[in-house]
Design a protein around this nucleic acid. Structure first.
Length: 188
DNA sequence: AATGCGATTCTCT
DNA sequence: GAGAATCGCATTT
């Protein structure tokens, strides 16, 4: 088992965390077995100053309150009444924010994964991630992220985030990070 | 109590 | 590219 990422890894600007998560391994030890996937696509959500973020203008609600909690926890929410989205809480001290995991590449436990992993809600289905995992400490032993493969900056591309037209000017901010040419990206 | 919508995915055109 | 599926949650009345 590779080294598990520690609290300090997540206690930084989400833009840094999002880039550094590329190549890392997402691990879920569930009742059905162990599933591992390499993170290949992420998006950073910066908190109160980011119109695309659920905590824009510092607004605290029942849904988003975990984004204000200690970095390194899981933020799972329902979208479109039928899917889940998985985020890692990441921010500097006293702030809020997170990193949205949009796609992973299956590494092990593939036989346990009933569908593909090239989309944020599809990977939640594949990894058995649901709302019961909201608030899970990623520094624990059930759901966590470990060191994986080193991705050089030359292999990382920046693009605008997906499906955030509601965010106005922020919709063009290049806060989506992908491993270039990876087959498991949610889109090109 | 009622309304409107979304950090998605799939299907059809 | 457009439209449907489908409902929890934030907001408004």
């Amino acid at each position: 088992m590779k080294d598990k990422l520690t609290r300090s890894f997540y206690s930084r600007n989400p833009l840094k965390v999002a880039q550094d998560l590329l190549g890392k391994y997402l691990v879920h030890k569930s009742r059905k077995g162990i599933m591992v996937g390499k993170i290949v696509e992420t998006e950073a959500y910066l908190g109160s100053d980011d119109p695309a973020c659920h905590t824009y203008q510092g607004k605290i609600t029942e849904r988003n309150k975990i984004l204000f909690a200690q970095p390194g926890h899981a933020y799972v929410y329902t979208i479109y009444g039928m899917y889940y989205c998985f985020n890692v809480v990441a921010h500097e001290k006293g702030k809020s924010g997170g990193v949205f995991i949009r796609a992973v590449e299956p590494i092990t436990g593939i036989e346990l994964i009933p569908s593909l992993t090239n989309g944020p809600s599809k990977l939640c289905i594949a990894f058995g991630i649901n709302k019961s995992l909201n608030g899970t400490d990623l520094c624990g032993n059930e759901l966590f992220i470990t060191n994986g493969e080193d991705i050089p900056d030359s292999e990382i591309a920046w693009t605008p985030r997906i499906n955030i037209d509601y965010a106005g000017k922020a919709k063009n901010w290049p806060y989506r990070f992908v491993i270039k040419e990876n087959v498991f990206l949610s889109r090109k």
